[in-house]
Nucleic acid binder design. Structure first.
Lengths: 341, 341
DNA sequence: GTGTATATGAGGTACGTACCTCAGTTCAAA
DNA sequence: TTTGAACTGAGGTACGTACCTCATATACAC
C-alpha cells in the first residue's frame, strides 16, 4: 500500500496540518520543518494520490485547443479527435474547449491567445503559424502560469513552451528518401507543391527534403516549391504549367498537410504510372489514393495521438510532473498501401 | 458538473442506498426499481466517478504479463517498458507483475497460466506461442472472470480473449512491398530468414509477404523460409549455404522479431551494397544497421505502445468499458534512416 | 388481520486529500 | 519578563463512492 499523508506526518514527526501546509506550499511553516517533511517524502517514497486530491479540491483541468478556422481534412481529423478526447478525458476531470483563430492574421490570433488569460484555463495547446505576435502572446500566457504547448505546426519548443508534433525536417527527409528510392536511378526533376512557403512547417520540410535528396539522389533535381495558397484555380494552373515546362518530372512531393486540391489534380492527370508521388497526412482521401496507386507513400502523424499527447503533456505540466517521453514522442509514420491496417 | 449518485437518487426517486445497490448489482432490489434507476442513469447522463469509487473500495487492479523467458532485444524492450509502466500506472492504482514461462514447452506454459487463477489477478496479458494448451488455459482464466488478452504474438483474438499487437499478415505484406520497390526491376531471389516456422507469427508474416510479392513483383522469387532456431552456428551455416547455392539473391527478409544473429552475419558479409535487407523491430541494433545502410527498412511495432495498450485494454475490460479503438490499434511502423527521430 | 419475507430508506464510517478554524506552543525582540 | 508574531497541532467538514447496519415500508400468503 502506498504511504498516505498520515504516514508522512508520522514519518516527519509533524501533524497532518503541517504536512498539508508543506504539500500545498502554504505559508507559515519554518524552513527547517519544510525540509524535514521533504526529507520524509523521499525517505518513505510518498506520492500524492492525485485522484483523491482532485476529488477533494473538486478540481477540473480546463484546457483549450487554439486551432485555425480554415483547413480541410487533416484539421477536421484533429477536431474529431478533440471531440473524442473531450468525452474520454471528461472522466478524468479534464474539460477541453476548442477556440478558433483566423490563421492568416497573426495580430488577431495573438489577441485571441492573450485573451485566454483570466478565463480560467490551466493549459492551452496552440496551433498557429509561427509569428512574433503569436510567440509573444504564448510566452505571456506561460508567464501568467498557464501551461502552453505548441501543437502540430508553428514553432518548435521555446522556453517554457513545449511542442507536441513531429520534427518536420525529419519528415521532409523521410519523404525524400522514399521518393528517391522509389524513383530508382531515373534522371529527372521533382515537383514540390506546398500551400505557402512562409509557413514554418513548409520551410522545415523543404530543408530536410533537399538535404537528403541532394546527398543521396544526384539523379533527381527538386524544382522550386510551388505555392497553391489554398486556391483551386491557382493550384490547377501551376501544376499544369509545371508539367508543360518540365517534361522530365519523375516524382511529386506534396508537402502541404492539406494537399487535397493538388492531389486531385494529379490524380486526374494520371499520366505516367511510374511517376512517384509522396504526400502528407492520412485522410480518407489519401488512403483512397494509396489504395488505387496514385500515391506511393504518405508521411503521416496520428491526429489521435497528437491530441491525446497534448492533453497528457499539459496535464502533466499542470501537475508538475514529467510526461512519459517515449509516449509523447509523435512518430513520423510512413504509410503505404499494405500498412493502412 | 457531472451528476453524482446523490443526483441520481433524486432523479430516480429512490434513496442513495438503493442507487448503490443497483450500481453495484447487489441483491434485494425489485426489477421495477432497478429499471427506474437505469432509466434515470440514461436520462441524466450519470457516469460513475471511477477515481472516487476506487478510492472508496481501496481497489488496486492486479495485472500480470506472461512472457517467454528467452528472447533478445525486442523482448528486453518489452520488459523495460513493463517496468516503466509499473511505475507510471502505480499512480492509477494498477499493479503489474511479470511472469516468465518456458516458451518452448506449451504444457508448462499452460500450467503457469492456469495457476494464475486464484492468485487475485484481475487481468492477464499472455505472450506465448499459440498452442491448444495455452489457448485452453487462457479460455479457462477468462471464464473464471479474469480478463485475458493475447499480447504481441500467438493467436489473434478469440472469444472473450482480445489481442494487443499487430496484424502480422499485413506486416509481412508491408515488408514485401518495400522490399519489392527498393529492389526495382532486378530479377533474382529473396532470402527469407526466420526463427521457426511453427510460430504462428512467422506463418502469418510469410503469407502476407508471399501474397504481395507474388502479385506485384514477378521479377522476385522468394526462397523457402530458413529457420535459425535461435542457434548461432546454425544461423551461420544456413546463411552461408544459401548464398553459395543461390547466387542471385537480390534481397533478404529477416522475418523473426529477434533477428540479431542473422543480421550480424549479413552485416559481416556485406557483399553487394545494392542488396535490399528488411527486418523487424526497432532495437539499438537494428537502428545502427539502418544508419550504416546495412538495413534498408525495419517493420516495427512500438513496445511502449504495446505495453500501455495492453494495460489500458485490460483495465477498460475490467471496468466494463470499451477501450478507445483508435488508441489501441497498434501501428505497423515503417522505419528508415530518416524517421528514426 | 397477522405473520413473514422482501424492499427500501436513513444514516453511519471509510478511502486520501484539501482546506478551514482555533487553541496552543515556540522564539526572538523589546 | 513580557509581548507579539510566527509556527504547529488538533480536529473538523468536504469531495463521490462503497459498504455496512438497522429500522421501517410494502407485498403477499395464510
Amino acid at each position: 500500500m502506498r504511504p498516505t499523508t498520515k504516514d508522512l506526518a508520522k514519518a516527519a514527526g509533524v501533524s497532518l496540518a503541517t504536512v498539508d501546509r508543506v504539500l500545498n506550499e502554504r505559508s507559515g511553516v519554518r524552513k527547517k520543518t519544510v525540509d524535514a517533511v521533504n526529507e520524509a517524502i523521499d525517505r518513505i517514497g510518498f506520492v500524492r494520490n492525485l485522484s483523491a486530491a482532485n476529488l477533494a479540491r473538486q478540481r477540473i483541468y480546463r484546457l483549450a485547443f487554439v486551432l485555425p478556422e480554415e483547413g480541410d481534412e487533416f484539421l477536421g481529423a484533429l477536431r474529431g479527435n478533440i471531440d473524442e478526447a473531450q468525452r474520454s478525458f471528461a472522466l478524468q476531470d479534464i474539460a477541453i474547449e476548442c477556440i478558433t483563430t483566423p490563421a492568416s492574421d497573426p495580430y488577431r490570433t495573438a489577441k485571441i491567445i492573450s485573451d485566454l488569460q483570466g478565463q480560467g484555463f490551466d493549459g492551452v495547446a496552440v496551433m498557429a503559424p509561427s509569428s512574433p505576435q503569436v510567440r509573444d502572446a504564448s510566452l505571456r500566457l506561460s508567464h501568467a502560469g498557464i501551461k502552453v504547448v505548441g501543437f502540430v505546426s508553428g514553432q518548435q519548443s521555446q522556453g517554457d513552451i513545449g511542442f507536441v508534433g513531429i520534427d518536420n525536417r525529419a519528415a521532409g527527409a523521410t519523404a525524400a528518401r522514399l521518393l528517391g528510392r522509389f524513383t530508382v536511378d531515373r534522371t529527372g526533376s521533382v515537383l514540390v507543391i506546398t500551400e505557402a512557403m512562409q509557413a514554418q512547417d513548409s520551410v522545415e520540410r523543404r530543408l530536410g527534403f533537399d538535404r537528403v535528396l541532394g546527398a543521396n539522389f544526384p539523379n533527381l533535381v527538386a524544382l522550386p516549391s510551388l505555392e497553391t495558397h489554398g486556391r483551386p484555380d491557382r493550384t490547377r494552373t501551376i501544376i499544369e504549367n509545371a508539367f508543360t515546362y518540365h517534361r522530365d518530372i519523375m516524382a511529386v512531393y506534396v508537402m502541404a498537410s492539406e494537399g487535397r486540391q493538388a492531389l486531385s489534380h494529379l490524380a486526374k492527370m494520371e499520366c505516367d504510372a511510374s511517376r512517384v508521388v509522396v504526400a502528407h497526412e492520412r485522410t480518407a482521401f489519401t488512403e483512397a489514393l494509396l489504395r488505387d496507386g496514385t500515391l506511393d507513400a504518405v508521411i503521416a502523424q496520428s491526429p489521435g495521438h497528437l491530441v491525446r499527447s497534448a492533453v497528457r503533456t499539459l496535464r502533466a505540466r499542470i501537475d508538475g510532473n514529467e510526461p512519459i517521453a517515449s509516449q509523447e514522442r509523435i512518430r513520423i509514420e510512413i504509410l503505404i498501401r499494405e500498412n493502412l491496417v
